[in-house]
Amino acid sequence: MTKVTMTINGKAVSGEVEGRTLLSSFLREDLHLTGTHIGCDTSQCGACVVHVDGKAVKSCTMFAAEANGATVATIEGQANEDGSLNVIQAAFQEHHGLQCGFCTPGMVMSAAALLKDNPKPSVSEVREYLEGNICRCTGYHNIVKAIMAASGQDVSAIAAE
């Protein structure tokens, strides 16, 4: 067992992990941050996306020991300080960008990473960026629309309800 220390959603945390403990397992099982989901075994679905040192990564494809000393952000830390939904979360709700909610944490975390690097993405940039996030419910329409809206761009031309 190895001791790891990291900052998660602004809080210092530490724990004992095995070499094989994935970051996702550490988050879910040791820290009970179960908003990070596991939807596949091959690093494709993206339900587990978190930020490590500001970059989107698949927490199911990184060992907890490798995040030692890192700053980690998960879905649980995304809301505004007063608990209200942040701009991206609010846009997902406003534009119905989620249904069953299982892929949603990864989608929100990927969207946040995208908008940090590319504050005004085009529709095709959004679609390409989501290559590693699979959603089975929405057909992606409203996810893309929500991210465009969260970036402050006019989405009124995109078909709505």
């Binding site: 993206g46 970059k55 990564v57 698949k58 990927s110 590693g132």
Partner: peptide
């Protein structure tokens, strides 16, 4: 290559 999260690792 892969997707953005894969590219970050």
């Amino acid at each position: 290559i892969g997707d953005p999260a894969v590219r970050n690792r």
